[in-house]
């Protein structure tokens, strides 16, 4: 009965969709594989928002504990609510603001990816980013509950966001490469069904033959060893070296998304809520991100 219940719940299905993204099963690894880029945009977005809200709660633990000590309960609850709304806003607004330019750069540089695959790709990489973020949430919540030092918590948050961001980008570049290769091959196949003359198509043919020879080895004797030969979601495949279009698109995307994201994070402050300041949903605009991180580092020893 419980298994039926689990099967019926759409949220659980969406969680499984995110799990497939993390395992690298949503993006076709072999370009000759005639499989769609299967990501339910709505479902994955819902899970992404849920993960962002959860991480926001972990951020709010610091103000909750501090509020309980000083009996400022309403301030603590307001700050927690603010954190829970701001983390999804940070990622959602950044994606909305940058998506048009990300798509246009991608088209200008010469990738043949259409709008929907590009959007799916970005949502999938946000899902990876947030899954790492939320998995580090318990560590943040524990340190928030046991640390009175505001600067330490700020630095820990910066480190966690950085780790999650790097892993999200590692996923993005591999997924982009696999998808770009699959699309290019698909188009080449339509144009020249008989002879693969282009270098990309011929390497793909070679990789298909290589895949067939590896398949000839009976897998069932070493199921674990055979499984590990498949590169994971964030690993490059020796069959598919990064092509130069992918490198250029990726560099542009990092620049645009990173700059807008950092500034968005700065505009949406405070995420944690300094215990010395009164509650405010937004702070007046001042200074910049990097200066603040350096200051927090020095204040930790003060």
């Amino acid at each position: 009965m419980t298994s039926k219940l689990i099967q019926r719940s759409p949220f659980v299905n969406w969680l499984f969709a995110v799990d497939r993204i993390l395992r690298g099963e949503s993006i076709p690894l072999d370009p000759h594989e005639q499989r769609d880029f299967q990501i339910p945009i709505f479902g994955v977005s819902v899970v992404v928002i849920a993960m962002a809200v959860t991480y926001g709660f972990c951020m709010g633990v610091f103000s909750l504990i501090h509020g309980a000590e000083t009996s400022e309960y309403s301030r603590a609850l307001m700050q927690t609510f603010a954190s829970m709304t701001k983390v999804p806003l940070l990622y959602g607004l950044t994606l909305m603001i940058t998506f048009p330019s990300l798509y246009v750069f991608n088209a200008l540089i010469g990738s043949r990816l259409k709008v929907t695959p590009v959007f799916k790709l970005l949502i999938a990489s946000l899902a990876v980013n947030l899954a790492v973020l939320v998995s580090l949430g318990p560590i943040l919540a524990f340190f928030s509950a046991s640390t009175p030092n505001y600067s330490f918590i700020v630095l820990l948050n910066v480190a966690i966001f950085a780790i999650a961001g790097v892993l999200g980008l590692m996923f993005l570049v591999q997924a982009l490469n696999r998808l770009a290769n699959a699309t290019a091959r698909h188009l080449n196949q339509n144009e020249q069904p008989e002879r693969p003359d282009t270098p990309l198509a011929s390497t793909l043919l070679a990789s298909r033959q290589a895949a067939q020879t590896t398949n000839a080895v009976p897998d069932h004797q070493h199921p674990i060893a055979a499984a590990t030969l498949v590169p994971s979601a964030i690993q490059s495949s020796p069959k598919l070296p990064l092509n130069r279009y992918v490198k250029k698109v990726f560099a542009c995307w990092i620049l645009v998304f990173g700059l807008v994201g950092a500034q968005m994070g700065w505009v949406l402050r405070p995420f944690i809520g300094s215990p010395d300041l009164p509650f405010q949903f937004f702070r007046p605009r001042e200074s910049n991100f990097f200066e603040a991180v350096t200051n927090a580092f020095w204040q930790m020893f003060a």
């Binding site: 799990d19 993390l22 395992r23 690298g24 990876v128 899954a131 790492v132 939320v134 998995s135 580090l136 949430g137 318990p138 560590i139 524990f142 892993l167 996923f171 674990i224 499984a227 590990t228 498949v230 590169p231 994971s232 979601a233 964030i234 690993q235």
Partner: peptide, 20 residues
């Protein structure tokens, strides 16, 4: 162990080591 396990699980999945 409980606090450290979620991130270890997600990292294992991302690196393709979920099966083990």
């Amino acid at each position: 162990l409980l606090i450290a396990l979620p991130s270890f699980f997600i990292l294992n999945t991302l690196f393709g080591l979920r099966q083990q």
